[in-house]
Write a protein that binds this DNA or RNA. Structure first.
Lengths: 144, 144
DNA sequence: TATTGTTATACTCTATAACTATA
DNA sequence: TATAGTTATAGAGTATAACAATA
């Protein structure tokens, strides 16, 4: 690790900070357009990938498990998710998106115009490069 | 815009969602290690770039101006920021990081090991590519 | 004994509306 | 008239500690 590379990491950390802020702002406004809080929107986005136990949802959202009860309560009251008992472990409840929940989640993503317009500035080759780099930085195993 | 590029945008939106979720989780844990909430940590991070008026801070954080009062109150009580009256407009208060605020903000960033380790997986050329792509997607003018 | 989901509690975040001081 | 910051309020998010049901 050279001194110059260290500086590059600092610059990239700052750039990620600004990028996250822009993305998160875009997301928050889009979620609000569906009368959802940012946390509710994040939960839906995670569940769009598939059902998850309450505990797993808390882990993915990096918050205490006790918070998930209230968030899922409100989403369930609006018919966007439902709790399903696990077949293998009677302590576990799996949270599943309803059809309406899928529709709303997709609507939020479709509303994120600023981010989508940003991505549309890239040509196919640059999209591929960005995808590969993001996977390498954020999806590689922690101790890989 | 071809059909294939559209699909790439969907994939990139999902990849950004996962990536920024990982970043935000890393950031939240790092802020908590300094006994700060994510919102307080975000405010400090913005102010690390320079002083900002209350209103400007609200705009950058994508929240109502009334929220900033409480957030800055708590940061000020801990000696991390201070309010300074604007010389040109007596309605305006500029929020400035204290030396301790700078130290804490840098400590949070230094604690984000997962993200830093991810960036360290890239060589200099890939760092440069990632930086350029993020700038193009998130920092280009909205109607550019 | 350990884990899952829930509840109770206290504090923080958030938007809305109304207020004041200033422009 | 308009804008910057604050206050009051109500609802939502958050961590902690404790609990019942299940493993």
């Amino acid at each position: 690790m050279t001194g110059l590379s260290r500086l590059d990491t600092e610059r990239l950390m700052e750039l990620l900070s600004v990028s996250l802020g822009a993305y998160y702002g875009d997301f928050t406004v889009a979620a609000a357009s569906e009368s959802l809080t940012a946390s509710q929107g994040r939960a839906l986005t995670v569940l769009r990938r598939g059902p998850a136990a309450m505990r797993a949802l808390a882990s993915t959202l990096t918050c205490d498990a006790s918070n998930i009860t209230g968030i899922v309560d409100r989403l369930e009251k609006r018919g966007l998710v439902r709790r399903e008992p696990s077949a293998s472990d009677r302590r576990v409840k799996n949270v599943v998106l309803t059809a309406e929940g899928e529709r709303v989640t997709d609507a939020i993503r479709a509303r994120m115009r600023a981010t989508q317009d940003g991505l549309d500035r890239l040509d196919d080759a640059d999209r591929e490069r960005l995808a590969e780099l993001l996977e390498r930085v954020f999806l590689a195993p922690p101790q890989g």
